[in-house]
Design a protein around this nucleic acid. Structure first.
Lengths: 244, 244
DNA sequence: CGGACCTTTGACCGCGGTCAACCTATGTGG
DNA sequence: CCACATAGGTTGACCGCGGTCAAAGGTCCG
């Protein structure tokens, strides 16, 4: 039986600019590669980890996309985030010896790189640059969670949906993909749940945006026709205060 | 002129059980103490740091309480969290060389311990236990931010207000204070803004809870008379699933 | 081609926002 | 000590956004 782990090659990975090896010296990268596990592909709706699992590893999306959510006490779920290539998952695992605080599943066929926390911590002690990059990645994650809180705060349904589209757009853009034409890999249900809205409201908002000509929607496919119009919806009076 | 920094004594600090020195060997603690700055008290409404400031330090609340918020583009603010003694602030600073992503102000006269990131990172390389504890503290912070997202998701005004009271209650309890009688250090405006509600709605919800006998409110003072009633509001059908 | 699932669209209504008035606590100056 | 001002908090009346319920259209499976 073949190993489920594939050969790891961080140097030639397209995501090396945003992942943990970033900034490392050339001869430090092999040290990191030895602790990375690259699992076999994960199919749509398969669990990456569950809320009750002992948490031991961080994960970085290599391809595909994921969704994580928390079971609330009534059995319902609250989606807390979506993850695209290069993004880190399982940061609750920083508290070693504890359990994951959320469940993460694949939205489509996907693959990840797995970093066991114990060995990563150890390596951070030896490679200061790795420590710095880990902190940087964690900091970015915290900032993006703060942005989610702002998104869910005092915002109308229109603002939420538009902000969501713009967030996805800029994340694809950062990966080198088109910022104006992309596919939503998650069903409406997940978007609605994430935004604190209902499926119907999301659908209606997308309908309105389509009628206004700002976007074109075909099922999961999104095309942004008027980026400025979208930005003006979430930032009605763009002052000079933040033009830096 | 006297130094603005007071003598640091982590060993005798009441918060040592939740702060960064936790788990360290006795002779490692002085090393940490040398990098901590303890600033003069901060008065109500004074800034601890601002959104545009270069970020260089983490802070732990020593006494008093804080609120942090993000300016949105329209000039309004979105409160993203409240901080009680022992809680960590300024984690956006993990991305060194960047700027704080939110602004933090004191809700009342307060004091903090300041940990410069550069020196803390350095020390983490030398003291593995410190690295572990830092990761643990960061992990807890991330988990609590995830909980905030769940709080703001698909919840009614009643659920939000009750959850807020229970969160504050359990945090005071963890500090060794009463979980049933405490003062809210923030005005209604901040609570409402944090929960994505209006002042009037928060006030009405507190009014209803008072009428039902579950709580007694006197201005900022809260007394919880029926903890179970509150818990049942946010967890209507408490199944055996999570009784662990 | 049938069936399951996802998505859209419409009609209705209730929760929570908005506006306004009033109440309460605290502080200041005469 | 009271008169007054100010900020924070409460309460009521009204109404619109978005949730709920229902039904119909689309898409992707086998």
């Amino acid at each position: 039986m073949e190993s489920i782990f594939q050969k790891v090659d961080c140097v030639n990975c397209k995501l090396s600019g945003v992942c943990l090896p970033y900034g490392l010296k050339r001869d430090d990268i092999p040290k990191l590669e030895t602790i990375v596990k690259r699992k076999r592909p994960i199919k749509a709706d398969e669990y990456l980890y569950r809320q009750e699992d002992q948490c031991t590893s961080l994960f970085v999306v290599k391809s595909g996309s994921f969704r994580s959510f928390i079971w609330n006490v009534n059995g319902g779920e609250q989606t807390i985030g979506f993850y695209l290539p290069g993004e880190i998952m399982g940061l609750d695992a920083l508290r070693q010896q504890s359990k994951y605080h959320c469940t993460t599943i694949a939205l489509e066929t996907a693959s990840v790189c797995e970093f066991p926390m114990a060995r990563l911590n150890e390596l951070c002690g030896k490679i200061p640059k790795l420590q710095m990059q880990l902190m940087c990645v964690i900091g970015s994650h915290i900032v993006s969670e703060q942005n989610n809180i702002v998104l869910l705060g005092n915002r109308s349904a229109t603002e939420k949906v538009v902000t969501f589209l713009l967030m996805i757009s800029s994340r694809y853009n950062a990966l080198g993909y088109s910022s104006t034409e992309f596919n939503l890999t998650m069903p409406r249900h997940d978007i609605a749940n994430f935004l604190g809205l209902t499926i119907e409201t999301v659908s209606r908002q997308l309908g309105c945006l389509t009628k206004s000509g700002a976007i074109t929607i075909k099922h999961r496919g999104v095309q942004i026709n008027d980026m400025d119009k979208l930005k003006n919806i979430v930032e009605p009076c763009l002052t000079k205060r933040f033009t830096s």
